[in-house]
């Protein structure tokens, strides 16, 4: 069964029927937003049943759209969280990616500004590496990007999409070794992105991220995960009651190869490892449970089939 990431938007009235339908079909609800009278569901649903969900949702004024980024966690990295980059550029991009289903976290570096003085510390490096992909938003000058980017990428192992003011070709020419994606002509700016030309730049960013993540998915498909992250999320929320007391919008964040569970590691790490998935198989058998560098959260990395010889 192939699961496809989708977003469902509809009225609050009878929306539980849609949730039940998706779950009965074998799909997973990743995130549910209630905004006034509207419900937005981000879900993974079986490819063959998309039409069925559309049909059931139609009388409820529900709308189903494909969202390629559902189930991914993306870091939006800016040189700092000062007025030079906020709110426009950084927030506009982070927010726009979110519309396509991704969970974005903004990472403002402590000393990422400047050309010669830019630095990346170990905490920032580890936090960025906990994501599926990092989007770097740099400035307008080629000279600066060329000089500072090698420092800012040091130790980063996740795919990088680089955004900057110079045209895409110029960015490609100055970055060595190459990164996974480039989007040019979107550097530092101080105004809100409203014009159609600017919105199309944001679309380019989403397109590039989708392309890079599709490539990563293809790589991962060669050695599939022992359990799908969405399924593991379902099991954890069923078996660990305390997760329902967490107030964060996504108490369990789904990533492409794992999960971020927003419970303290010291208390719940051992509990999680021993949680049973199927008869005789525990989370600890199929995945590694680490403390996250983000607050005191737990990070779960699901092992591939080649390591466990199990697929559930």
């Amino acid at each position: 069964m192939i699961l496809v990431p989708v977003t469902y938007k509809g009225g609050i009235y009878r929306h539980d029927e849609i949730i039940d339908l998706i779950e009965d079909l074998g799909g997973y609800i990743i995130q549910k937003h209630m905004i006034a009278q509207e419900v937005v569901l981000q879900a993974l649903v079986p490819k063959d049943d998309i039409e069925l969900i559309r049909k059931v949702g139609k009388p409820l004024t529900g709308e189903l759209t494909l969202s390629p980024l559902v189930g991914t966690e993306i870091a939006v990295v800016t040189p700092s969280l000062e007025i030079h980059h906020l709110p426009h550029a950084s927030c506009d991009i982070a927010e726009y990616i979110r519309r396509f289903g991704a969970k974005t976290n903004m990472v403002g570096l402590a000393r990422g500004f400047g050309k010669r003085i830019a630095q990346l510390n170990d905490e920032e490096r580890d936090v960025i590496n906990e994501h599926d992909l990092a989007v770097y938003l740099l400035g307008d000058f080629e000279t600066c990007i060329e000089k500072k980017f090698p420092v800012l990428r040091r130790g980063i192992v996740v795919p990088i999409v680089l955004c900057g003011g110079p045209p895409t070709d110029a960015l490609k020419a100055i970055i060595d070794p190459p990164v996974d994606g480039y989007v040019g002509s979107i550097g530092r700016f101080m105004h809100r992105t409203k014009e159609s030309e600017e919105i199309s730049r944001l679309d380019d960013v989403v397109e590039e991220i989708t392309r890079v993540l599709d490539k990563k998915r293809e790589e991962m498909a060669k050695d599939p995960l022992s359990i799908s992250p969405a399924r593991l999320m379902d099991i954890i929320s069923e078996k660990i009651d305390e997760i329902h007391e967490v107030l964060s919008p996504t108490p369990i964040t789904v990533q492409m190869g794992g999960l971020r569970v927003k419970l303290p590691y010291d208390t719940f790490g051992p509990v999680l490892r021993k949680t049973e998935i199927d008869e005789g198989v525990t989370v600890g058998d199929l995945a590694e449970v680490f403390p996250s560098r983000m607050r005191d959260y737990i990070l779960i990395r699901i092992k591939p089939f080649s390591e466990t010889n199990l697929v559930i």
């Binding site: 307008d140 000058f141 080629e142 003011g165 110079p166 110029a170 700016f189 105004h191």
Partner: peptide, 10 residues
């Protein structure tokens, strides 16, 4: 850098 200059003008 012409492109950079134009951005800074804006």
């Amino acid at each position: 850098e012409k492109a950079g200059g134009d951005y800074y003008r804006r």
